[in-house]
Design a protein around this nucleic acid. Structure first.
Lengths: 293, 293
DNA sequence: TCCATACCATGCGATATTGCATATTATGAA
DNA sequence: TTCATAATATGCAATATCGCATGGTATGGA
């Protein structure tokens, strides 16, 4: 007897998740179902695929072998779904996009609104996250990303350039204006761990006061007066309580791209979304870049 | 909604078989089940996968796309099953071998008997056919073939060389002995369509009387006295009513090989079978080759 | 024309699968 | 020790799936 393909897939999920509950969640079934499918596969193959331990299921060699091949099968299943979607020329049904929360809040919302109105039959799902979702696995159909280039083997469309600058409360702005030599507290990304390069030499004294791994937190800290933060123009300008200060002159920041998998790119729904995105970003370009001097 | 992997597999079978009944047979289910799985997949994808015609189901572009990817998934499923089998070091359960009918009847039967006795827990299945079964698709685990080399990307083990010669009834033998110039009727393979090369020039007159596409038929024709046939020594010698005649001197014929897929080759059951096959063929080598002059 | 054949569609009862509720066990922190 | 947590197992009822039987339709040959 050979196990069914769905049972092979279940083995894959269980090897990945290492527990019935985790695999069940991934598959969208009850965890008892996972347990029974595994038993069924073991019976069909007449060999043990997992050791039942107190802290979960640990795959045997045979279980690992199945998982490896099932992962390839899954690749093809994903490729299939992408290709079907790319061929889909209807303007109804589900469409998933992803973008960073802050970009949605300050730049994307009107475009999303316009899209929903224009295509009421499309069920738009927006995943607001800074995580780079896996477009191969169809975690999203189109991603709006802040990065230097589309990367990978993905298709990309540049929506706009943007600049960053320094922002702080009015109190900080006044203090720095009064005394350029004052010690300037910075609130920065943990990833950088240093004061931005290219600060205006007029302001010689800096220190890192706080680091965060999230821009929302940095902005909140700046709003609370904890220091100066470098952020994209669109964000600083739109944040109440923050004003742009001359410590860091406006300078190029990572661009904003729409990226998608080449298979999915030509789909009617994806194209329709891009066709709203492009003029929208053209119309709000001034939010992102400093005026030419 | 995404279709289940088993439903994708069902689409593949239906694209291949072009009718519910054919797909159902391939999958080992009732044909109504196939129809319902297709409907389910179409609902899940919200698009038609087949046109229902009077003479069967014809796939749409989407249906074909699914079939292409599902075929890749199937390749991996086969690869998986082969690999699992290759890792299997038990001596119980199913084992499928294939060999030409005539070879089984005249040379292999004792080895098969010996194997079944030695490994009673192995459920041996013998597919007696001249068709080259697809070892990639696990139509057999080990094949015994008459050919020049294992071919493809398969593993091979040469079991014996063999010779062919000319055989006919005693009446023909007498007639040719009396008059070497007599017109000799040949019964030959359709594929060759000509008298064998290397006939002894002592016998100058030949004609093709009959062609067949099957050795069993050729042998029967020769037994019935319809003419002279070239066949492997082991076959001619074992056929009642036929005697070897000097028209065609013994000469090299295609060798006998055990061939298998490299993945499956190391499996305990397959190895066990080979380990019986090799000494068996060594012990019956005289059936296959002419005595050294 | 008529019949045999090879398809597909659908209703119904049998069966297999699934989810829920509950029981059980090991682990680690208070 | 005791309790909370996170795992796996299992009985039972709901549900989905399946196979069978029946009916319908087009095709091709007698």
């Amino acid at each position: 007897m050979e196990p069914s393909w769905d049972d092979l897939r279940t083995v894959l999920s269980l090897v990945r998740g290492a527990s019935l509950a985790s695999a069940a969640e991934e598959l969208g079934v009850n965890y008892t179902t996972v347990a029974r499918r595994i038993s069924r596969a073991e019976t069909a193959l007449d060999q043990k695929l997992f050791d039942r331990l107190a802290d979960g299921y640990r795959p045997t060699e045979a279980g690992k072998t199945i998982a490896e091949h099932a992962a390839r099968m899954e690749d093809h299943a994903h490729g299939l779904m992408r290709q079907l979607q790319g061929q889909d020329n209807t303007l109804r049904g589900p469409l998933t996009i992803t973008a960073p929360q802050l970009l949605i809040a300050h730049a994307l919302a009107p475009a999303i609104d316009q899209f929903c109105t224009a295509y009421p039959e499309i069920a738009l799902h927006v995943r607001a996250t800074n995580d780079l979702l896996d477009l191969n696995r169809r975690e999203a159909d189109l991603a709006i990303r802040i990065s230097r280039d589309p990367g990978d083997s993905l298709k990309g469309l540049r929506l706009t350039q943007q600049h960053s600058a320094s922002f702080a409360t009015q109190a900080w702005a006044d203090r720095i204006a009064d005394d350029p030599d004052t010690l300037i507290d910075w609130v920065v990304y943990a990833a950088y761990q240093d004061v931005p390069r290219n600060v205006d030499p007029t302001f010689p004294n800096h220190r890192i006061r706080l680091t965060f791994d999230d821009m929302v937190a940095i902005r909140a800290a700046a709003q609370a007066g904890l220091g100066v933060a470098r952020m994209p123009l669109f964000l600083g300008r739109a944040t109440p309580g923050l004003v742009q200060i001359p410590v860091l002159p406006p300078q190029p920041y990572a661009e904003i791209w729409a990226v998608g998998h080449p298979d999915v790119w030509p789909a009617a729904k994806v194209t329709a979304f891009r066709n709203i995105l492009v003029p929208h970003f053209r119309s709000i370009r001034d939010k992102f870049v400093a005026k030419a001097a």
